[in-house]
Amino acid sequence: MNTSIYLIINSLVLVAYFGLPVSFALGGGMHPQAQIDFVKNQIAKKQQPYYDAYLELIGYADDALNQGHHALEDFSVPGFYRDAEGHRNNSRSLQTDSFNAYACALAFKLNGDLKYGQKAIFFLKSWATTNKSYSDADGPLVMSYSGPGLLIAAELLKDEEIWKSTDKRQFQEWVENVYRQACNEIRNRKNNWADWGRYGSVLSAVFLDDPDEMQENIRLIKSDLFDKIAGDGHMPEEVRRQDRGLWYTYFSLAPITAACWAILQTEGTDLLLWEENSRSIKLALDYLLHYVKEPEAWPWHEKQRPGAPDSWPGNLMEAMEAIYDDKRYGEYVGTARPITYTTHHFAWTFPTLMKPILTY
C-alpha cells in the first residue's frame, strides 16, 4: 500500500476512535515511535551500521554530561560577511548546546539511562530561562538552523515523567516567544532562509501541538517548491552564490527534506514524493549528487567546495537513500558510516542511526 495512503487511513482511524484532530492524529516529528522502536531492536541485535552509530552517539552524549550551558540572554549574531568572528562565536553557543541536548535526549530514548535525559533537560531549561531574544542581521537565521536540536530533544522528552511540568511549560513559552518567532520572521524569504524558517516552524508546531501553524508551513512549502527547483534540478536562488553554490544547494535541501519528513510523520502529507512537471525534490538531490562528485563540471561558478561523504552532503544522502530507494546515495557515503553531523545546523544530524524509512 502507498505510504501516504497508509498514513492517512491510520490518521482517520485515530480520529474516529479517539476524537483527535486530523492534523495531529499521527504524532511523530523527526523521530516517530516506530523509528525509535526499530532502532532499539537493531541495537539490541548489534546490527550494523546501527550499532556502531549508537556507540558513536553514546560517546557524544557522555561528552555532553561534563559540559555546562552557553545560553545567551540576547542571541545576537552579526552578519557573517561583516563580522565573521563575532558571527561564529555567538552562533557556537546555541549550536553546542543544541547538539548536546539532542544527543542526550536521543541516548535516553534508546537506552533509558536517566543521566542522559536529565542532562538534555538541563540544556533545554538553560535556554528557556536565560534566552529572551535574538538580534542583529543573522540572529533569526542562525537561531532557526541551530535551534532544531533543542526542539527535537524536547519532542523526544515531551511525554517523559523526568521533565517537570513547570520546566516543560517554561520551554514551551520560549518556543512560542523566541524560537518560533525567529523562524516565522524569515519563512517567507525566497532562498534557504525560508527553508530553515519553515523547518524550525514545523518543529515548533509539532512540539506545541499547533495544527494551524503546521498547515501554514505546508502551504508555504507547496507555494514555491517548484520555483526553488528548476527543470534540470538546479536551485536558482542557491547556485548564484558563486564559489559556494554547491554548499548553499545542500543548505537549502537539508531543511526542505527534514521539514517534509517531519510533516509526513506528524500530519501525513507527503511532499518528499511530490512531483510536478517532472520537478521534484529527488531531481534536486540527483543534481547535487552529480556535481559533488564532479565539482569541476559545476556550470555556475568555478572552485566549488564539494563537501564529503562523512560531512555534508553525506549526511543528506545517507538520510535520503531509503526514502527514494536509490543505492547511489548510499554508494556515495560508502565507508564513511556511521555519519554524524555535529556542528552548525541540525537537520540530518544522526542519519545513519536514525535513518528515515517510509515503513519501519
Rank of each mutant, 00 (worst) to 15 (best):
N2P: 15
N2G: 10
I5Y: 00
I5L: 12
I9Q: 14
L14P: 01
A16R: 12
F18V: 10
L20G: 03
V22L: 11
G27W: 04
P32M: 04
A34E: 11
Q35N: 05
K40P: 00
K45P: 00
A61D: 14
A61S: 12
H69N: 11
H70M: 02
E73A: 11
V77M: 02
G79E: 07
S91N: 09
Q95W: 00
T96W: 00
D97H: 03
S98Q: 06
K115N: 14
G117M: 02
K119C: 10
F122R: 02
W127F: 02
T129K: 09
N131H: 00
D136G: 02
M143E: 12
L151H: 03
K168F: 11
Q172A: 10
Q172F: 11
V175D: 04
N177M: 12
C183D: 04
I186H: 00
R189L: 07
N191V: 03
N192I: 13
A194H: 10
Y199I: 13
S204A: 14
E213D: 12
M214E: 11
Q215D: 12
N217E: 13
K222E: 15
K222A: 12
I229P: 13
G231M: 15
D232S: 15
E237S: 13
R244T: 09
G245T: 03
Y248E: 06
S252F: 01
A258Y: 00
W261I: 06
A262P: 03
L264T: 01
W274R: 15
S280L: 11
S280F: 09
I281R: 03
A284D: 05
A284R: 02
L288C: 09
L289Q: 12
L289G: 01
Y291K: 14
W298R: 13
K303I: 05
G307N: 08
N315M: 08
M317I: 08
I323Y: 14
D326W: 00
G330P: 06
E331R: 09
T343E: 07
F350R: 01
P356W: 10
L358C: 12
